[in-house]
Design a protein around this nucleic acid. Structure first.
Length: 476
DNA sequence: ATGTTC
């Protein structure tokens, strides 16, 4: 993206001035190099989102943004129902409630080095990964209903997790307002045997070491110390979320037309929040959020089983579990007034600052952990929500490194085996169901995650707490 | 992201 097309507000804030049908400006948070690296499609898609009815303040773009379906990935947009605001399946994304959870292991890098190969092999054997992967769990009709209502609370009741996990999961582990009656038979069918599975693409389970601390006080509050080892899981709502996204993208097109909404791009299909389709999507999407929360809780349980076997007596305590593909009803102060808004975050992480009432007691004073997954081999980050993030982008931050290159281009450039060998020489063991998947996810196909989180910090979206480097990566 | 084609 050519920066001269934008108005530069400060070092890390850029505006697309409203023209034509745009109701609000586009507001991009990134340094100049990241802006230059962004696809022109991000500009076009941001301007398109800014035309949607009821959008409040701006169409926001995080520093890791790239071209997505309709809305950019790394986009945040909030809509007011009383102003004809809309909800959009493309504004949430196909992988509804895709997110990241990190768990403390209580172990150090030296402990892992003693058992790195058997640990990697045991994780690969226990964590179902890859397209269409299954875990051996099969849900009855009744189980499915309970899961879609109960999320991680359901998973804990079923024995896959610990009740103390729940306060460290967004929404206390259970998204209210889920309506499983809005989830099609086909979506349920696709999910019946997919609970407790990673899936494919950029989803992973990693064993990571704390490599660098940026903020001692917050790191201590989060339980992060140099050399400490974490397990981090990145995955979402699998086939169920994808099916819901597919069905509602289809159903929202006529709904938008019926509501008299002019769409600059069919992929922006949306429905008024108060319309029947809009309400059905909310009921289904919230069910999918519960599916993702339950899925990550079950995978966390599997990881606990493996660690208990390889390191007898070890326990995994949850640091936090947060989604980056959702639409949430939140109250935000706009022009001095608290407003109830439908906040779409697509490839953007909720990042509540210190004192937020929705944070658990143990974290309220410091702020919410913002878990940022990097690519294989390049490391990940833990950030903390900042008070300034509230007015910058409705308390949102980046979600990862963000792709710098298409999967197709990555396949032309790298071979999966060579990527694995290269990472092994750097002390990182990769275990994957798919060599093709490894090539698509080669570290070089991603932006520099360090540059992304630094830009997020400079923009006041969140602050850096710790950098993590991978030791083992189980890829889908 | 995705039973990579309803």
């Amino acid at each position: 993206m050519d920066p001269s097309r934008l108005t530069r507000v400060d070092e890390t804030t850029w505006r697309i001035e409203p023209t034509g049908l745009m109701r609000v400006p586009g507001i991009l948070y990134a340094d100049e190099a990241l802006i230059r690296g962004m696809d022109d499609k991000v500009y076009e898609q941001t301007a398109n989102v800014a035309t949607l009815p009821g959008i409040v303040q701006g169409a926001f773009v995080m520093p890791d943004a790239h071209w997505g379906y309709g809305f950019p990935i790394g986009g945040v947009a909030a809509f007011a129902p009383e102003e004809g605001g809309v909800i959009s399946a493309g504004g949430v994304g196909f992988d509804i409630s895709c997110g990241v959870r990190s768990m403390h292991t209580g172990l150090t890098v030296a402990d892992i080095r003693k058992a790195q190969v058997p640990l990697a092999d045991a994780l690969l054997a226990r964590i179902p990964a890859g397209l269409g992967s299954q875990s051996g769990i099969s849900l009855s009709r009744h189980d499915m209903e309970a899961m879609l209502h109960g999320g991680a609370v359901w998973a804990v009741k079923e024995g896959w997790g610990e009740s103390k996990d729940l306060e460290r999961i967004e929404e206390g582990g259970r998204m209210a307002g889920a309506d499983p009656g809005c989830v099609s038979a086909r979506a349920r069918q696709r999910q019946r045997r997919e609970m407790g599975t990673l899936g494919s693409g950029n989803h992973y389970l990693e064993v990571q070491a704390v490599e660098e601390i940026f903020d001692d006080r917050v790191a201590t509050a989060f339980g992060l110390a140099p050399d400490a080892v974490l397990v981090t899981i990145h995955c979402g709502s699998r086939g169920l979320g994808h099916q819901i996204g597919t069905e509602f993208l289809r159903d929202m097109l006529p709904a938008a037309s019926a509501a008299g909404i002019r769409l600059p791009d069919r992929e922006l299909a949306c429905a008024p929040i108060d319309s029947p389709v809009g309400q059905r999507y909310l009921g289904a999407m919230r069910s999918a959020i519960n599916c993702a929360l339950a899925n990550r809780e079950i995978l966390g349980h599997f990881a606990r089983e493996v660690f208990a076997a390889v390191f007898p007596g070890s326990t995994l305590d949850l640091l936090f579990d947060v989604s980056h593909n959702t639409c949430k009803v939140e109250t935000h102060v706009v022009d001095g007034q608290p407003r109830r808004l439908f906040v779409h975050r697509k490839g953007a992480t909720r990042a509540f600052g210190p004192g937020h009432a929705d944070l658990p007691e143990a974290l309220r004073r410091v702020g919410q952990p913002v878990l940022i997954g990097g690519s294989m081999g390049t490391g990940s980050h833990v950030l903390v929500g900042a008070g300034s993030g509230e007015e910058r982008a409705f308390s949102s931050a980046c979600h990862g490194a963000g792709r710098a290159m298409s999967r197709h281009a990555a396949l032309r450039r790298w071979q999966g085996r060579a990527v694995i060998d290269d990472l092994r020489r750097r002390g990182i063991l990769v275990r994957s169901a798919s060599l093709r998947g490894v090539a698509e996810e080669a570290p070089g196909a991603y932006k520099d995650v360090d540059q992304v989180v630094l830009a997020a910090e400079r923009a006041g979206l969140a602050r850096r707490v710790a950098r993590l480097r991978p030791l083992i990566c189980i890829k889908g």
